[in-house]
Design a protein around this nucleic acid. Structure first.
Length: 857
RNA sequence: GCCCGGGUGGUGGAAUGGUAGACACUGGGGAUUUAAAAUCCCUUGCCUGAAAAGGCGUGCGGGUUCAAGUCCCGCCCCGGGCACCA
C-alpha cells in the first residue's frame, strides 16, 4: 500500500505498536495496586486448527476497547486470555494422524496467539492459562475432589447417547434433533442410546440457589429467563394413591392438586419399577409389548409422535384419596420416568395432554373447575378441549365453590394428616452427566478399590455420606479420590486415541497407568506393591470440556499458584469479573455449570461471593454477506486475516463495531469497510500535513462550532463506551472529524483529545499519531478527557414549529426563550401563518428549547 | 404449543413521547488528474409537480396523546430457545 512516510501505512505501524505493548507491558495487571480494579473477561476460545473466525474479534474488540478505555480512566485493569484446549476436534485429529493432542494444541495455540496479537488485542499474557496444562488441571481435579467429598459426585449406569462414528458418549446438548433422527452436534453422525457407567454431578442440589442467585445479576433478561426455564422449578404436591388389591401405593407429582376430584385415571411411565408388579395377568402381554416398544424409542421419537398418544391399560386400579373413587392405571410413554415420580394422576378436563389421551382411549372426563364460558364446548355442554385456567371448583365435594388457588392448599391440608399428600417442588433440571469416554480431557483423580479394602481408607479420601460404588468389569468396587499431594494426575501416553468399540475410554488400555497400589492412610500411590498397601484401579473416563471452563476466570487472578487454585487475598482484591462478554450460545450450559461450581467453591470458602459473573453481555453473530450464518459449505466465510491485509487491524476493529449494536446479529458487508478506511485516512490527514508534520494551529481555541462538536463528542463517546454502544460512538467520532477537517489547522489540545477518544477502538493509529505529535509515552497513560458542559451551551436554539403536530418551519431563537416569545415567533413564521389562516387556535404547546405545536381547526 | 428477541430507505443502521432516516455503504452528477488511485463538492425514502410546494411513509389493524418508530390492545411475518417436565 502507501509507502511515503506521510501517508497512513497501517501494515507498518500496527506491528510496531503491538510489539510496544508487549515489551512495555502496557496492559499488565498489577496485584494489589492502590487503584480501583476492573476485570473484563472474554469467553476463552477453543484453539481449533482452523484459526480465528470473524466471530472471535467481534467480542474481543469490544473487550479490548473497554479495557483500554477503563485503563485510561485510571482503573487497574485485568484483561487476560487463555485456551479452552481440551476437546474433541483435537482428539479426532489425533485419531486420524496419530499426532499427540498436546502437540496439535501447542501449534494451534501459537497460531491463535499470533492472530489475536495481529488484531491489536493487548492482553496480559503473563496470566495466560491453558486448561490442558497440568498446573491448571490439577486444580480442576482438585475441585472435582471437593465435589466428590461433599457427596456431589456419584456414579450411575445411564442410558446415554453413544456415537459409534466418534466412538464416544455425548451429552444431551451435544445431540441434535434432525430429520434423519438424532445426530451428533459435531460431524452430524448418527447416535444411539447405550447404558454406560457415568460420573454424574449433583447440580440439582443447587437448583434452588441457582434460581435465587439470578435475581441480583446484571444479565440480559432473556438469558436469565432461559436459565430459569432450564432449571424449571414447579411447585405442587406429591399425592399417594393406594393401588387396589393390596399391591402397594403409587406416588404422583402434580401442580394442580385442586383438580384432584377430576382425576379419572392414572398413568405410569413404561420404565416405572412398579409396572410389572401391578399389571394383571390378562394385560401382561400387551403391557410388556408396549413397554418394550417404548424402550426402543428415543426421547426424540417419543416427542415427535406427540400428536398421537399411545398407551395400554395395566389392568390395575387405584383409589383416589380424596373421594375413594377407583380409577384405572394406564402405562403410556407421554409420562417420563425422569421427571417427578414417573407417574401422574390424569385430569383430562384440565390438562391438555390428559385430555388428548382420554379422548383417544375413551376415558372419563370430569370438569371440576368452572371455566366461566371461556372453554370450548360441544352442543351437549361438554368440554372439547382442556380448560387449564383458574376458576371456582365444581363437582368437588366440600371444596366446591372454592377458588382453585386456595383449593390447592386445602387439598394438601386435607390429605396431609393421613400421609397421603404433601407440598413438593420439582425441577426440570437433571443432574449433570460429567464423564466422557475420551482421551483428551482431564483424568478423574479417582481410584477404585475392593469394598473390603475401602474400609481401611482414611476418611479424607471418602465422600460424606454413602460410599460411591459401581461394578467395574463385573466386580463391585468403591471409589476414592486422590489426595491433593497426588495431583495433578496426568494423562498416560497411549498407543491409540481411539475408544474401544464398546464405548470404553482409550485410557482403559493404558495398562501401567491403570493399576496402582495405594497407601490407605494417606492415599499415596505407587506402581510397586508395599506392605499394607492395597491394589486399586484408576478411573478411565475423562472430564467433559465444560470442566476446565467452569473456573478459568478465577485462575487468571492467580495463574501460577501451586498451593491453591487461587490466593484468597488476590481473590478479594480482584473479585469476580466486572464484565463477561461472550456468545449467547453459552447462555445455559457453560454459564449454569460455572455458576454451580462457583456456588460450591463459595461454600468451601474458596471465593468470597456466591455468583461469579455480575454483569454479562452477549455479542451478536456476524452473518455472511448473504445474511446467512457463515459456513464453509455456504462459501460465505470472511477471514479476518485477509481484511487485515487490505485494510489493517484498526479498520477491521472499527468496522466490526460500526456494523451495528454489539448485541445484534448483523451481516458482514465487505464494501462497507471502505467508509471506515476513509475515516482513518481522514484522521491521519487531520493530524498530519502532507509533509508528515503535525497540522497544528497557533490558536489556543477552536472556533465555537468545532468546540461544541468536540465536547459533544467527548460526552457521547464516553457514555457510549460505558454502554458498549460502539457503533454510535464511531458515528460521533466521524461527525467530529468531518467538523474539524473543515479548518486549516487544529489546536494541539483538540487533536490530542480526539486521539484519546479514538485510541480504545483504533489503538495503533492513535498511538502512532500521538507519538508523531511529540509524545514519548504511550497514549494509554494519557488519561481520559472530560467534556466541558459550558462548551455545549448554545446561545441560540432551533425551535421547531408545528401546526396540528406537523412540521411547518423552524427558527433559531435565543436559548431559554420563554413560551410567549416562542409562540409569537411561531405565529410570525410565514408558513405557520399560512396553515393557521382561517382556523381557530385551540391550543398552544411549547416544549422548552424544542418545539411549538399550535393546534387549530 | 410455550418463552424470548426482532420487523425503519436500494443496504447496514440512528432516533430521553417532540423535524423519522444521524453516521456510513451503494447509486447518480460534478471538480481535480494526461489517466487512474486518493481527495473534495452536490445528490440519493416514496408519490404528485416544470418549480415552489404539498401529500404519504417505521410489518398490519385499532387505541391513548397537542404529538407515537417509541406507550397500550389485537394480529401477521422472521430469528433464537424449550418442547408430552404433569
Amino acid at each position: 500500500m502507501a509507502s511515503k512516510h506521510n501517508e497512513y501505512n497501517f501494515s507498518e505501524i500496527e506491528p510496531k505498536w503491538q510489539n510496544h505493548w508487549v515489551e512495555q507491558k502496557t496492559y499488565q495487571a498489577v496485584d494489589f495496586a492502590q487503584q480501583p480494579t476492573y476485570y473484563v473477561l472474554d469467553m476463552f476460545p477453543y484453539p481449533s486448527g482452523a484459526g480465528l473466525h470473524i466471530g472471535h474479534p467481534e467480542g474481543y474488540t469490544a473487550s479490548d476497547a473497554l479495557k483500554r478505555y477503563k485503563k485510561a480512566c485510571g482503573f487497574n485493569v485485568l484483561h487476560p486470555m487463555g485456551w479452552d484446549a481440551f476437546g474433541l476436534p483435537t482428539e479426532q485429529y489425533a485419531i486420524k494422524t496419530g499426532k499427540h493432542p498436546r502437540d496439535t494444541t501447542e501449534t494451534n495455540v501459537a497460531r491463535f496467539n499470533q492472530q489475536l496479537t495481529q488484531l491489536g488485542f493487548a492482553y496480559d499474557w503473563e496470566r495466560e492459562i491453558n486448561t490442558t496444562d497440568p498446573g491448571y488441571f490439577r486444580w480442576t481435579q482438585w475441585i472435582f475432589s471437593q465435589l466428590f467429598r461433599k457427596g456431589l459426585a456419584y456414579v450411575d449406569e445411564k442410558p446415554v447417547w453413544f456415537c459409534p462414528e466418534l466412538g464416544t458418549v455425548l451429552a444431551n446438548e451435544e445431540v441434535l434433533n434432525t430429520p434423519e433422527g438424532p445426530r451428533s452436534e459435531r460431524g452430524s453422525y448418527p447416535v444411539e442410546r447405550r447404558p454406560i457407567r457415568q460420573w454424574v454431578l449433583r447440580i440439582t442440589a443447587y437448583a434452588e440457589r441457582l434460581i435465587a442467585g439470578l435475581k441480583e445479576l446484571d444479565w440480559p433478561d432473556s438469558t436469565k429467563r432461559l436459565q430459569e426455564n432450564w432449571i424449571g422449578r414447579s411447585e405442587g404436591a406429591e399425592i399417594t394413591f393406594e393401588i387396589d388389591g393390596g399391591k402397594g401405593s403409587l406416588e404422583v407429582f402434580t401442580t394442580r392438586p385442586d383438580t384432584l376430584y377430576g382425576a379419572t385415571y392414572m398413568v405410569i411411565a413404561p420404565e416405572h419399577p412398579l409396572l410389572e408388579s401391578i399389571t394383571t395377568a390378562e394385560q401382561s402381554e400387551a403391557v410388556q409389548a408396549y413397554a418394550e416398544k417404548a424402550k426402543r424409542k428415543s426421547d426424540l421419537e417419543r416427542a415427535e409422535l406427540s400428536k398421537e398418544k399411545s398407551g395400554v391399560w395395566t389392568g390395575a386400579t387405584a383409589t383416589n384419596p380424596i373421594n375413594g373413587k377407583s380409577i384405572p392405571i394406564w402405562v403410556a410413554d407421554y409420562v417420563l420416568m425422569t421427571y417427578g415420580t414417573g407417574a401422574i394422576m390424569a385430569v383430562p378436563a384440565h390438562d391438555s395432554r390428559d385430555f388428548e389421551f382420554a379422548q383417544a382411549f375413551d376415558l372419563e372426563i370430569i370438569q371440576v373447575i368452572e371455566d366461566d364460558g371461556s372453554a370450548e364446548k360441544d352442543a351437549e355442554g361438554l368440554l372439547t378441549e382442556a380448560y387449564t385456567g383458574p376458576g371456582k371448583l365444581m363437582q368437588s365435594g366440600s371444596l366446591s365453590g372454592k377458588d382453585s388457588e386456595a383449593a390447592k392448599q386445602a387439598v394438601i391440608e386435607q390429605l396431609a394428616p393421613e400421609g397421603r399428600g404433601k407440598p413438593e417442588i420439582n425441577y426440570k433440571l437433571r443432574d449433570w452427566l460429567f464423564s466422557r469416554q475420551r482421551y483428551w480431557g482431564e483424568p478423574f483423580p479417582v481410584l477404585w478399590v475392593a469394598p473390603e479394602d475401602y474400609q481401611k481408607l482414611d476418611a479424607s479420601l471418602k465422600p460424606e455420606g454413602d460410599p460411591v460404588s459401581a461394578k467395574i468389569d463385573g466386580v463391585e468396587r468403591c471409589a476414592l479420590v486422590l489426595p491433593e499431594t497426588q495431583l495433578p494426575l496426568e494423562l498416560p501416553e497411549v498407543e491409540s486415541y481411539t475408544p474401544s468399540p464398546d464405548g470404553q475410554s482409550p485410557l482403559a488400555k493404558a495398562g501401567d497407568w491403570l493399576q496402582v497400589y495405594l497407601d490407605p492412610a494417606n492415599g499415596t500411590t505407587s506402581s510397586e506393591a508395599h506392605e499394607g498397601w492395597i491394589p486399586a484401579t484408576r478411573e478411565t473416563n475423562t472430564m467433559p470440556q465444560w470442566a476446565g471452563s467452569c473456573w478459568y476466570y478465577l485462575r487468571y487472578i492467580d495463574p501460577k499458584n501451586d498451593k491453591a487454585p487461587i490466593d484468597p487475598e488476590k481473590e478479594k482484591y480482584w473479585g469476580c469479573p466486572d464484565l463477561y462478554i461472550g456468545g449467547a450460545e453459552h447462555a445455559v450450559l457453560h454459564l449454569l455449570y460455572a455458576r454451580f461450581w462457583h456456588h460450591v467453591l463459595y461454600d468451601l470458602g474458596v471465593v468470597s461471593n456466591p455468583e461469579p459473573f455480575k454483569k454479562l453481555f452477549h455479542q451478536g453473530i456476524i452473518l455472511g454477506e448473504d445474511g446467512e450464518k457463515m459456513s464453509k459449505s455456504r462459501g460465505n466465510v470472511v477471514n479476518p486475516e485477509t481484511i487485515i491485509e487490505s485494510y489493517g487491524a484498526d479498520a477491521l476493529r472499527l468496522y466490526l463495531m460500526f456494523l451495528g449494536p454489539l448485541e445484534a446479529s448483523k451481516p458482514w458487508n465487505t464494501k462497507g469497510i471502505e467508509g471506515i478506511a476513509r475515516f482513518l485516512r481522514k484522521v491521519w490527514r487531520l493530524v498530519l500535513d502532507e509533509n508528515g508534520k503535525p497540522r497544528l494551529s497557533d490558536d489556543k481555541a477552536l472556533d465555537p462550532e468545532s468546540a461544541r462538536t468536540l465536547h459533544a463528542t467527548i460526552k457521547k463517546v464516553t457514555e457510549d463506551y460505558e454502554a458498549l454502544s460502539f457503533n454510535t460512538a464511531i458515528s460521533q467520532m466521524m461527525i467530529c472529524v468531518n467538523q474539524l477537517a473543515k479548518t486549516d489547522a487544529t489546536p494541539r489540545e483538540s487533536t490530542e483529545i480526539f486521539l484519546q477518544l479514538l485510541a480504545p477502538l483504533a489503538p495503533h493509529i492513535a498511538e502512532e499519531l500521538w507519538e508523531r505529535m511529540g509524545h514519548t509515552k504511550s497514549i494509554a497513560h494519557a488519561g481520559w478527557p472530560e467534556h466541558d458542559p459550558a462548551q455545549l451551551v448554545q446561545d441560540k436554539v432551533k425551535i421547531v414549529f408545528q401546526v396540528n403536530g406537523k412540521y411547518r418551519g423552524d427558527a433559531d431563537l435565543p436559548a431559554g426563550v420563554d413560551q410567549e416569545s416562542a409562540i409569537v415567533a411561531a405565529k410570525a413564521h410565514p408558513k405557520v401563518a399560512a396553515f393557521l389562516e382561517g382556523k381557530t387556535l385551540r391550543r398552544e404547546i411549547y416544549v422548552p428549547g424544542k418545539i411549538v405545536n399550535l393546534v387549530a381547526n
